Simulated scan of single mutants.
Amino acid sequence: MKKTHVAVLMGGVSSEHEVSLKSGAMVSGNIDRAKYDVTQVVITQEGHWKFPGEDLLDIYHALPRLRELKVDCVFIALHGPFGEDGRLQGMFDALGMPYTGSGCAASALAMDKIHSKAVARQAGVRVADQFLLTRQEWDANRAAILARVEKEFDYPCLIKSPCQGSSIGMAIPKDVEHFKKSLLEVFMYGDLVMIEKFINGTEVTCAVLDVEPGDPPRALPVTEICPVDSEFFDYHAKYTPGACNEITPARISPEVTKKVQAVAERVHHVIGCSGFSRSDFILDGDDPVWIEVNTIPGMTETSLYPQAAAAAGIAFPQMLSLFIEEALARK
């Protein structure tokens, strides 16, 4: 029987290039070769596409190459802008080429923390209070901004770049001087930032599996996140082996577990996700506060989604097959 040809797309031009390479390598190494032929495709940080044993191609020549290789499905293992934000998804939609994960609109919405929070809030999901700040506003009236931060949130608070992933472009300043320094660092990722209220609580994450046509999305076991030497679940804690203890199932009550799972399923639905997603939370007592949804969660050896799937009895190769078959069924 003819095998399905899957191209695993990894790397990319975003600041998460290295993480994406690790995700792509794990995916490629664990796809069931009895069912699938696999071609690894690396996108360089300059935006060129590298097929095995071939010269670099620009995107205009790379897309016809996918057709020439008779690729049946693209497994998108890209993280961050120009991979997770709907642009590639829309391109593959236009080409009629199946791909794993959420579609163009949901990917774009989920990547934008400002607008995804607005949609979640409208759906009755609790999110942290925030206000938006531009570089122009900061330069024009710093004293007023600092007074507003102290009045509305005090310290610590959070500063976030709205369209980055893997906790890149994020800081938790402890005082006013730290705030000013951190703000300039986050502005390096763009001229608009989110200033959020800091909630001191347990961080948990909940994966959602959505692979059966006609069936509702299903939340997997909740994972508790305990960074070892970082103050929050930052890039180091996420991708350095041993830098974070991840406990599945989380050490929370069955009632709180059900709350977290229900919100994760709700967000997956209202954002419009497909196939799979992972929502992150802070627990304010027994009340989950939703942080964000990841439409292409990490697939590295330290990643949370595969851990949740394993806790639900789904082995890594089986999980990847579910993603691929869902993409093909959605064609």
Rank of each mutant, 00 (worst) to 15 (best):
F276S: 11
E212M: 07
G103C: 08
Q130F: 09
L209E: 03
V186E: 14
N200R: 09
K258C: 01
S15E: 13
G103F: 01
W49L: 10
M194F: 07
V176Y: 01
H268Q: 03
S107C: 01
G190W: 05
R135D: 11
L132M: 12
P241A: 04
E16N: 01
V260D: 04
S274W: 00
A62V: 01
A171H: 12
R67E: 14
T248Y: 05
D37V: 10
F92G: 01
M170K: 14
L183R: 14
V74F: 10
Y99R: 09
V119G: 14
A7P: 07
V74P: 15
W290T: 09
W49K: 09
E177F: 06
A143H: 02
G298K: 02
D215L: 10
T202C: 04
F75N: 15
R148S: 04
G242W: 06
L109C: 08
P297H: 07
F82A: 00
Y239G: 00
I43L: 05
G275F: 01
S274R: 06
D55M: 07
G298W: 02
H115S: 14
D72T: 07
L183P: 15
Y235H: 13
A62H: 09
L209S: 08
A171S: 15
V149R: 05
D229L: 04
F92W: 13
V289S: 11
V119D: 13
